[in-house]
Amino acid sequence: MDELLRDLMKKVGAKGALVVTNDGMVVAGFVRADTRKDVVGALSSFLISATNRCLMQGNVGGFNRIFLKATHGKILIQALKDYFVVVLTDQFSDKVLLVDETMRVASKLRKLTTIQS
């Protein structure tokens, strides 16, 4: 898992890449020294739970992906089964590359975490 996330960070030039659970626990991941892993995990969880709650109340189903663009960075949250891949980049990163690479890593992570029968 660590290897995949490190590879993802290198390819998209990310400031951080994490795997977090629905309740904000960081399962694995790396962030740059100026960012705190637990803060990113907790805030991602806040965003995920608030968005999901709203969608569920409206009976429109859950979300697969969240992409946010802010003044100094971008955030991508890709939903896996019970957890989420969170990637932080600066504002100059390429969105298409970010989405594609995250999807690729997410599918590998999905395989990695599925218990083979």
């Binding site: 960012t35 803060v39 990113v40 805030l43 991602s44 806040f46 965003l47 608030a50 968005t51 969608l55 429109v60 189903g61 859950g62 979300f63 697969n64 992906r65 969240i66 992409f67 946010l68 663009k69 802010a70 003044t71 100094h72 960075g73 955030i75 932080l88």
Partner: peptide, 23 residues
């Protein structure tokens, strides 16, 4: 929620967002 999240992550102000799902 997005605005609050990016502010707390020190990423400035939220400007654009895309939410993908079955909808």
């Amino acid at each position: 929620v997005a605005q609050r999240t990016v502010r707390r992550m020190d990423l400035g102000n939220f400007s654009k967002g895309i939410l993908d799902g079955v909808f």
